[in-house]
C-alpha cells in the first residue's frame, strides 16, 4: 500500500520535473497577484502592513485553484486514471499520493515564496515567521479540499471555473484561520490558537478528503 503511495508520488514528481512550466505558472500567478495589490491600493506602508496577511492568503488560495483543474484531468485523458481505479490498492491512498505530489509541486513553492512577498508589505520578521507556518499548515488543506472539487468536475465543460466555485466556499475556514494567525501575531494577540485550529482542519481534511475524492473519482470516471 505504501509502495503504491510512493510510486504515484514519485511518478508525479518526475512528470513535474520533466514539465516544469506547470510549476512556474502557479508560482508566477501568486507573485503577480500579491504584487498587484499595492498598485491598486497605494504604497502607504501602514495600509499595506494591515492588509498583507489577507492579500497573501487570498492570493495563495486563488493560485492553488489555478493548478487544481489539471490534478486529475491529465491522468483521465491518457487512461492512467482508469488503471488507478482498477489497481488493487485503496484508491484513497493513491489519491493521497497524488495530492502530496500536487502540494509539493504547487503548494510548497508558494509557502517558500511568501516571506519574500511579505517583505514587500513591510511585515516584521515575527509576522513573516507566522505567515510561513500558517501557509505551511494551510496549503495542504487547500490541496486536499481542492482535490474533491477537481474530482467532481473531472471532464466537464468549463471545469476550471466550476472547480473554483465549488471549492472556494469550502476553503473559507482555512483562509480565516490562516490570515487570522498572522493578523493576531501582528496585533499581539498571539497566533497559537489560530494555528491549532488550522492544524485541526488539516488533520480532518487528511482524514476525510481522500475518501470523498476517491468516491467522486469513481462517479466521474464512469
Amino acid at each position: 500500500m505504501f509502495e503504491a503511495y510512493l510510486a504515484i508520488l514519485k511518478r508525479d514528481l518526475i512528470l513535474a520535473v520533466r514539465r516544469r512550466s506547470d510549476v512556474f505558472t502557479t508560482l508566477f500567478f501568486f507573485v503577480i497577484v500579491v504584487s498587484l495589490f499595492p498598485l491598486g491600493i497605494g504604497p502607504e506602508l501602514k495600509t499595506l502592513r494591515l492588509i498583507a496577511p489577507g492579500v497573501v492568503w487570498v492570493a495563495a488560495l486563488l493560485a492553488s485553484m489555478l493548478a487544481l483543474e489539471r490534478l486529475f484531468a491529465v491522468d483521465y485523458a491518457d487512461g492512467t486514471l482508469e488503471q488507478m481505479l482498477l489497481a488493487p490498492q485503496p484508491l484513497s491512498v493513491l489519491v493521497l499520493g497524488k495530492v502530496t505530489a500536487h502540494w509539493l509541486i504547487t503548494g510548497l513553492p508558494l509557502v517558500l515564496m511568501a516571506p519574500l512577498l511579505g517583505l514587500q508589505y513591510d511585515l516584521s520578521i515575527e509576522a513573516l515567521k507566522v505567515l510561513l507556518i500558517s501557509l505551511l499548515l494551510g496549503t495542504p488543506a487547500l490541496s486536499l479540499i481542492g482535490a474533491i472539487g477537481a474530482a467532481l468536475t473531472l471532464g466537464l465543460r468549463g471545469g476550471g471555473v466550476l472547480v473554483s466555485l465549488l471549492v472556494l466556499p469550502l476553503c473559507i475556514p482555512v483562509l480565516i484561520f490562516g490570515a487570522g494567525a498572522v493578523e493576531a501575531s501582528v496585533s499581539g494577540l498571539g497566533e497559537v490558537g489560530h494555528l491549532y485550529m488550522l492544524g485541526a482542519i488539516v488533520l480532518l481534511a487528511l482524514l476525510l478528503a481522500p475518501l470523498a475524492t476517491s468516491a467522486a473519482l469513481r462517479v466521474s470516471a464512469e
Binding site: A4, A7, K10, R11, I14, L15, D78, T80, Q83
Partner: peptide, 19 residues
C-alpha cells in the same frame, strides 16, 4: 494508460507497482 513524458520502462514499472 501510459504517460507521454515517461519512458516505456518507467511506465511499465509504475503500472506494475500500482498493480
Amino acid at each position: 494508460g501510459i504517460k507521454d513524458d515517461l519512458s516505456g520502462i518507467e511506465n511499465l514499472r509504475i503500472s506494475c507497482a500500482l498493480d
